[in-house]
C-alpha cells in the first residue's frame, strides 16, 4: 500500500509500487486533466506539480512519492495559475488543447521560480513540452504577458 497526498487529500492505494503516478491519477482517481502523450517523459503532456515543481507523472512511480505533495490542474488555483489561464484565453492559445494543461503546469512552475524570464529562459523551461498544433508563439506571448501583469500588480 502506498500513501500519497494528491490535491490536498490523503490517498491510500494498493496499486503496484512501480505504477507511474499518471495512471493512478487518470485510471483510478479519474483526474483526467493530466494527459498521456508518450510514457517516456519526452512530451510534457503529463506534467503535474510535486512540491510545487513541474514533474513528469508518466515516469514517476507512485512509490517514490510517499510523503510528497502532489497537485494536478484540477486543484492548482493559485493567483499565478489564474493569471496564466486568463492570458491563455486572451491569446486564444489552444488548438486541439491536448498538451495545454501540461504547458500551463510547466509555465506556472517556471514563473514561480523566475518572475521575469527572458524569451530564452522561457524557451529553455518550456522545451520539454511538445505541441504538435504549433501554438508555441502564443504560449510565449501568454507567459510574457502573465509575467508582466504580475510584476505590475506587485508594484
Amino acid at each position: 500500500m502506498t500513501k500519497l497526498n494528491i490535491n490536498g487529500n490523503d490517498i491510500h492505494t494498493e496499486l503496484s509500487a512501480d505504477t507511474p503516478l499518471l495512471w493512478l491519477l487518470r485510471d483510478e482517481l479519474k483526474l483526467t486533466a493530466t494527459k498521456f502523450g508518450c510514457g517516456l517523459g519526452q512530451c510534457g503532456a503529463c506534467t503535474v506539480h510535486v512540491n510545487g515543481q513541474a514533474v513528469r507523472s508518466c515516469i514517476t512511480p507512485i512509490a517514490s512519492l510517499s510523503g510528497q505533495t502532489i497537485e494536478t490542474m484540477e486543484h492548482v488555483n493559485t493567483e499565478l495559475m489564474t493569471a496564466l489561464k486568463r492570458q491563455w484565453q486572451v491569446h486564444n492559445v489552444p488548438q486541439c488543447g491536448y498538451c495545454q494543461v501540461g504547458q500551463l503546469m510547466t509555465a506556472s512552475s517556471l514563473l514561480n521560480q523566475n518572475q521575469q524570464p527572458s524569451i530564452h529562459e522561457i524557451e529553455q523551461a518550456m522545451s520539454g513540452n511538445i505541441c504538435r498544433c504549433g501554438t508555441y508563439g502564443r504560449i510565449k506571448t501568454a507567459i510574457l504577458q502573465t509575467a508582466e501583469q504580475l510584476a505590475t500588480e506587485i508594484k
Partner: peptide, 18 residues
Amino acid sequence: PRVDLLEKVNGTAMFGLD
C-alpha cells in the same frame, strides 16, 4: 474566441482517452 477555450485551459475538455 474559440468556444472550447475554457475547458481546454482548465483540463475539463473530454478527449477520447478521458
